[in-house]
């Protein structure tokens, strides 16, 4: 199979409120191939988590998918009935959330939580589930699983708990894992271990990973490709090297702390570092045209009038009028 494992097209996530509809994710499109790690990066509030939650069908009402398609191995999975979606969650898409301290139920042992997940998806006996649970704990690097399996979450350190969370996501060998800020709450040294674990999964098992983070450093180290989100939209998407070393979108460039090398001022490579002035707009005050235009050092007339779609630039694509050919 050569097509993407996950394909999101023009995803729109809305929150109907009394004072009008908030659009939290607006026309996001991305794809992940088997074994690939796609980084999703952006400031807090950019819509990264909601994109992930929309994919696993766990948007909290009144949040809803208002438009777009989500395909897993070619099949549409948005709008599936609850029970069908439940069987995809955990079985075909695993999830890892930010805070390992709160992701595990404190009143159940890690063994109980692992076996219940295995039994929810696989036709195995409880004894076989326990054997598999032990193997998973070993796989994610928990020392002495035999001794640890009957411990409660509070008996593990933060890093070890996040490994347990990863093991839980792996229970039914999903082909895709959505990891939402899996290292943000962890110490730097432990971050590296969790990142290494995710990379090993992708390499050895061909698991695709959607790695959500606001840490460009984590992306640079881990991801194959990266999507940059801004105000619910994808500003730029492409191979991680390209995006980091030759950012096309002025927002990405700002994130990297450098000025883009192409566009209106092409050729005139400026060495000055810029801080992006201002803050990302609130959902109820997203400016017309390009959402970034009030902060963009390179905006021009068209930016405030028309909204840019992703435009292919070499191996990447950027939603920026700088790359439009002609008016």
């Amino acid at each position: 199979m050569s097509g993407p494992l996950l394909e999101v097209k023009d995803l729109r996530v809305e929150f109907p409120t009394r004072r009008g509809t908030l659009v939290a994710v607006d026309g996001a499109s991305l794809a992940i191939a088997p074994g690939e790690i796609l980084g999703v990066v952006g400031e807090s509030g950019a819509g990264k988590s909601l994109t992930g939650m929309a994919i696993i069908g766990l948007l909290e009402p009144p949040g809803r998918i208002a438009a777009g398609e989500i395909r897993l191995a070619g099949e549409r999975i948005d709008g599936l009935p609850y029970e069908q979606m439940r069987r995809i969650r955990g079985r075909r898409i695993g999830a890892i959330f930010q805070d390992p301290l709160t992701s595990l139920n404190p009143l159940f042992t890690v063994g109980e939580q692992l076996t219940e997940t295995i039994l929810a998806h696989l036709e195995v006996t409880p004894a076989a589930a326990r054997t598999r649970a032990l193997a998973l704990l070993a796989e994610v690097g928990i020392p002495a699983p035999q001794a640890r399996i009957d411990h409660y979450p509070h008996q593990f350190s933060g890093g070890m708990r996040q490994r347990v969370v990863v093991a839980l996501a792996l229970c039914a060998e999903p082909r895709l894992i959505i990891a939402d800020e899996p290292t943000t709450a962890l110490d730097v040294s432990i971050q590296a271990q969790i990142i290494a674990l995710l990379r090993r999964l992708a390499r050895e098992h061909g698991t695709a990973v959607m790695l959500i983070t606001h840490d460009m450093g984590v992306i640079a180290e881990t991801a194959d490709r990266v999507a940059v989100m801004y105000a619910g939209r994808i500003a730029e998407i492409g191979p991680v090297r390209e995006v980091i070393h030759a950012p096309r979108h002025p927002y990405t460039a700002g994130l990297m702390g450098s000025i883009p090398k192409v566009g209106r001022g092409a050729g005139k490579k400026r060495g000055r570092l810029v801080q992006i002035e201002g803050a990302m707009p609130r959902l109820n005050a997203i400016p017309p045209g390009c959402a970034f235009n009030p902060r963009c050092p390179q905006r021009f007339a068209r930016c405030a009038a028309e909204r840019p779609e992703l435009i292919a630039v070499g191996t990447t694509a950027a939603a920026c009028w700088l790359y439009a050919d002609g008016p």
Binding site: I88, R89, G90, R91, G94, A95, F97, S103, E116, L168
Partner: peptide, 13 residues
């Protein structure tokens, strides 16, 4: 979070 995560693991309602 642990209830959200329990749902994300695909446990039944």
């Amino acid at each position: 979070d642990y209830i959200k995560f329990a749902r994300a693991r695909g446990l039944s309602d």
